[in-house]
């Protein structure tokens, strides 16, 4: 018997959809609720960044070099208070972080979504058709997973140059294979079950069996891994941008902001690197906490 959760609520059923699962978990667990709220707040702030940010940090006309490297809380020439200070070009760090987080989140979510779609399709096809198709796909997957992802992304980006779309491409390239492997494993287990034989017995088209039966029944654990992988995609993007091969300077992400502030750390102007760093940690941690709770709830097949 699985023990009931502390609040005595009944365990979640195996087939509780992910969406409901998140909500139910959030209702029951303060940490999950906290991270979910934090993530929602971050996402909202990010979406509304252009409205919320006190200044447009990339409109050079609105910056004043006189305000450069102001400490948090100081007032600038124009009378605005820079709550998180300014960088070496007089840019408001709060605005830069809101915009930077937007770039980080867009890259993380978009690359994960695209990698997930490719990986799930490849894994599903491999599991359904088997034989030579399966071998070919899985050999490619093993090949891809054989290299450290940062290395592949670095090599690719140094060849094709920086850019938001190019970073997304690089992250998709290094992440799709893990979804393919997971999806194939899950779909192989499902495919042996009798309800799939029943579908064959009804002469249902292969495409229908794959999309209506195999996909929804095998994708659960893959989606959970993808949730956590958004965090690693954001971290990978930050690393690449920090190393100078990621997003362009005109559209800095949190990683690039940290890199820009890095040189001022020793001279005591900590806020230029530390605040973007804290934002990155908060973003990654809230995603990880939610993903981790989801994963554990799936593993135990109940809360």
């Amino acid at each position: 018997m699985t023990s009931l959760p502390r609040d005595g609520a009944p365990p979640l059923a195996i087939d509780t959809p992910i969406r409901r699962r998140v909500l139910l978990l959030a209702r029951r667990r303060p940490t999950t609720r906290g991270s979910l709220l934090a993530l929602l707040a971050l996402a909202l702030a990010v979406m509304l960044a252009p409205l919320l940010a006190p200044q447009n940090p990339y409109d050079l006309a609105s910056l004043s070099v006189m305000d450069n490297r102001l400490a948090p809380g100081e007032q600038g020439m124009g009378g605005i208070t820079y709550w998180l200070g300014t960088d070496s070009q007089g840019r408001d760090m709060l605005s830069a972080i809101l915009h930077g987080m937007r770039t980080s989140l867009i890259v993380g979510v978009a690359s994960t979504a695209i990698a997930l779609a490719i990986g799930v399709a490849a894994g599903l096809v491999a599991a359904q058709f088997g034989g030579a198709i399966d071998s070919a796909i899985m050999r490619l997957v093993d090949f891809m997973l054989g290299f450290p992802s940062i290395l592949v992304a670095l090599v690719l980006l140094s060849a094709i140059g920086r850019g938001v779309d190019k970073v997304i491409l690089a992250i998709v390239l290094v992440q799709w294979a893990q979804y393919a492997r997971l999806m194939r494993a899950a779909a192989m287990v499902e495919r042996r079950k009798e309800y799939i034989e029943a579908a064959v017995n009804f002469g249902l088209p292969t495409r229908h069996i794959m999309l209506a039966h195999l996909l929804p029944n095998s994708i659960g654990s893959v989606l959970v891994v993808a949730t956590i992988s958004i965090a690693s995609a954001i971290a990978l993007e930050a690393t690449l941008s920090f190393l100078g091969v990621g997003v362009p300077v005109t559209q800095p992400s949190l990683g690039l902001l940290i890199a820009n502030g890095f040189e001022f750390l020793l001279s005591g102007e900590y806020w230029i690197a530390v605040f973007p760093g804290l934002a990155l940690v908060a973003l990654i941690m809230s995603i990880n906490l939610i993903g981790d709770r989801l994963r554990r709830s799936l593993n135990r097949r109940a809360l």
Binding site: I14, K193, E194, Y195, E197, A198, N201, N217
Partner: peptide, 19 residues
């Protein structure tokens, strides 16, 4: 033919799509 010859399975848990 497939429809006219129908199988009833052994395992009542695995033979229905849970979703």
């Amino acid at each position: 033919y497939l429809l006219k010859v129908q199988m009833v399975f052994q395992d009542p848990y695995a033979s229905l799509d849970p979703r």
